[in-house]
Amino acid sequence: MLGAGRVATQLGPALWRAGHQILGVWSRTAGSAAALAAQIPGAQALDSAGLRELPAADIYILAVPDAAVAAVLAAVALPPGALAAHTAGALPLGVFEAYPQLRGGVFYPLQTFSPGRSVDWAGVPLCVEATAAADEALLVVLARSLSKSVLVVATPQRQALHVAAVFASNFTNHLLGISDALARQAQVPFALLTPLVRETVEKALHHPPFTVQTGPAVRHDNATLDFHRAALAAHPRWLALYKELTDSIQAQSGPPPPNNEELPPL
């Protein structure tokens, strides 16, 4: 396991619980490697020189940030013919082309990982890809030991999926953060929004999301939109984001309804 960050910290122990032996853990931070290795029986923490002295293994998993994969590949001394798989969503399989002595692969978990929270790996989609069919089959077997949702996904589709995931997860979380801050500013509990958030997500998971859009933007309620813009004047960045999202919703939903047509509810 090359890397000891958010992905590796959850993936390493999960692989061990699934019956796989983790021989070693390397990290740019020795303390992180030691902490992760301590959670995995039989795993050895590799020191800073570990990249040049890796134990022989069936698969070397590069669970490092996207921007670090190329640097790790350039520094690591993998045995010729070794299978190395990165866990990045946006990084192409072609990153291995500069290392023809290696067998390249992708082992991408489509999930968000945070310290202090564990995930149910059985429900985490795992997207795999490899330069050779035999290696792809091996990664599929490894993935199926963890998850019930395993897909072979080529680089272009995986990269598009990663963009979609950023909108679905990262941007959504940021918007919820703004909601939390506004609720705190008004001295009302953020928890009041919990039923609304749950219903919004459930509805979007069971219908095409654009078809169930609600709110003042989709109904072109200009009075409410103006009030909201005024309320956000003290937060210019959030105001700009509000305006941009309003424009996007209205562009997607089309023109306002006729004046004599009853406006949809919130």
Score class of each variant (00 low, 15 high):
Glu244Trp: 05
Thr214Phe: 13
Gln187Gly: 07
Ala234Arg: 04
His207Lys: 08
Thr214Met: 11
His220Ala: 08
Glu244Gly: 09
Ala217Asp: 01
Phe210Leu: 15
Ala204Gly: 08
Arg219His: 08
Glu202Leu: 14
Gly215Trp: 08
His235Gly: 00
Arg237His: 07
Lys203Thr: 15
Thr211Arg: 14
Gly215Lys: 08
Ala204Phe: 12
Tyr242Ile: 00
Gly215Tyr: 08
Ala181Glu: 14
Val212Thr: 15
Leu245Ile: 13
Arg198Met: 11
Val201Tyr: 04
Gly215Ser: 09
Thr224Leu: 13
Ala181Asp: 13
Phe210Gln: 15
Arg219Ser: 04
Pro208Asp: 12
Gly215Glu: 02
Ala223Glu: 15
Thr211Leu: 14
Leu196Asn: 10
Arg184Pro: 00
His206Asp: 14
Ala183Ile: 02
Ala223Asn: 11
Leu193Arg: 03
Leu225Lys: 03
Thr214Val: 15
Leu225Met: 14
Ala240Phe: 01
Gln185Thr: 05
Arg219Cys: 06
Pro236Asp: 09
Ala217Met: 01
Asn222Leu: 15
Pro195Lys: 05
Leu193Lys: 02
Ala181Gln: 12
His228Cys: 07
Thr214Lys: 11
Leu196Pro: 06
Leu225Phe: 07
His235Phe: 04
Phe210Asn: 09
Leu241Gly: 01
Leu182Ser: 00
Thr224Ile: 11
Ala230Gly: 15
His220Cys: 04
Ala240Gln: 10
His220Asn: 07
Leu241Trp: 00
Asp226Ala: 15
Trp238His: 08
Leu205Trp: 05
Arg237Cys: 03
Leu241Ile: 01
Lys203Tyr: 09
Val212Ala: 14
Glu202Val: 10
Thr200Gly: 07
Pro208Val: 07
Glu244Asp: 14
Gln213Tyr: 13
His235Glu: 09
Ala230Phe: 08
Pro195Met: 08
Trp238Gly: 01
Arg184Cys: 10
Tyr242Leu: 05
Trp238Lys: 00
Leu232Ser: 04
Asp221Arg: 02
Glu199Gln: 15
Ala181Tyr: 05
Trp238Arg: 00
Leu205Pro: 00
Val201Ser: 03
Thr224Ser: 09
Thr194Lys: 12
Leu182Trp: 02
Leu245Met: 13
Leu232Val: 02
Pro195Thr: 05
His235Ser: 11
Pro216Cys: 11
His228Asn: 12
Glu199Thr: 10
Lys203Glu: 12
His228Pro: 01
His228Trp: 13
Phe210Ala: 14
Leu193Val: 02
Arg237Tyr: 02
Thr224Trp: 02
Ala230Lys: 15
Glu202Met: 11
Leu193Cys: 06
Val218Gln: 09
Leu225Ser: 02
Val197Gly: 06
His228Thr: 08
Pro236Tyr: 01
Pro189Val: 03
His207Thr: 14
Gln185His: 13
Ala240Ile: 01
Ala223Leu: 14
Leu196Gln: 10
Ala233Asp: 13
Thr246His: 03
Ala240Trp: 00
Pro208Glu: 10
Glu199Met: 06
Thr246Tyr: 06
Leu232Gly: 02
Leu232Asp: 04
Ala183Phe: 07
Ala231Lys: 01
Leu225His: 06
Gln185Tyr: 03
Asn222Ala: 14
Asp226Tyr: 07
Leu205Arg: 10
Phe210Met: 11
Val197Trp: 05
Leu182His: 03
Pro195Ser: 10
Pro208Cys: 12
Ala183Met: 09
Glu244His: 12
Arg219Pro: 01
Lys243Ser: 08
